[in-house]
Amino acid sequence: MQHSVSPLVESLWRFGIVGLIGLGVWIVLRSGRVMLGNAAFAAIAAAATAALVARGTADIIAVVAGVLAAAACGALFGVAAARATSTGFAIASLALWAVELSMRAPAGAVLRSQGSPVFVVIAVAGAGVAAWFYARSRHGRAAAAVGQDERAAQGIGIDPVRVRVTAVTVGALLAGVAGSLSVFYPGFDITAYRLHGDIAAFAAVVLGGAGGALGPLVGAALVAIAAVAPVTKEHATAVNAVALLAATIVLPGGIASIFSRAARR
C-alpha cells in the first residue's frame, strides 16, 4: 500500500501496534499458554472500527466498540480453550488464523489518515506500565503461579481456568486497542494482520524477552525499526522470523534479560 509518512512516524505506529499485540501474547504466556493468533483480535477490532467509522460513527465510539468486540471474542476463545493442555491451547489458537484470513476492510471505507501515532504510542506505554504493576499484583502473581506450576497454584487456592480466561481476554483487549487505533494509520491494511501480525508480535516477545513487561516493548521497538530500515523493510516478516529463531537459540531470555542480569549484579 502506498502511503507517505516519515520512517520515524511509521516506526512509532508499528512499535505501538506490535507492542500492544505482543503485550497481549506475553500476558497469556505468563499464564502458561502460547497464543499464536492474538493478531486476530486486532483484526476483529480493526474491522469493527473501520466499519463504524465508514458509517460516520464518532471515532472514539468506533474505537471503544472495536476494543470491546475484540475483548468479547477473546473471552469466548478463552472460555473454550482454557481447559486445554498447553499443546492443545497452542493448536486451538491457530484456528484464529482463519479469522485473520477472513477479515476484510469494509467496502467504501474512506478512513482518517491523520498519520499521528501519538495515541497508539500513549496506549502502548500505558499498557506497558499497567502490565508492570499487574505483574507485581496479587492477580499477576497468581497468573505467574499458574504458568509455572498449575497444580501448586491450585494447592494455594488459585483457579487456573479463571486465570487463563482473564489472561486471554486482557490479551485480546490489548490487541483490540492496537487494531482499533490502526484504522487511523495512514498505511492501514487489515490484511497485514494475516500471520505477519502474529509473527511480528511473537518475535517482539521472544526477542525482547518474556521475563517481564519490558521485554515485549523492547522487542516491538526492534521489530518496528526492522520494518522501516531500508536494508530490512522489504523482507520484514522474514527478518522477524529469523530474529525469532535466532533469539530462541542464542538468547532464550531475550534482550531484557541482559538488563535484568546486569541489575541483579
Binding site: R141, A144, A145, Q148, D149, R151, A152, G155, G211
Partner: peptide, 10 residues
C-alpha cells in the same frame, strides 16, 4: 507436595 513444586522463576 512431595516434589516441592515451587515457582522456580519467583
Amino acid at each position: 507436595y512431595q516434589e516441592d513444586r515451587l515457582f522456580g522463576r519467583m
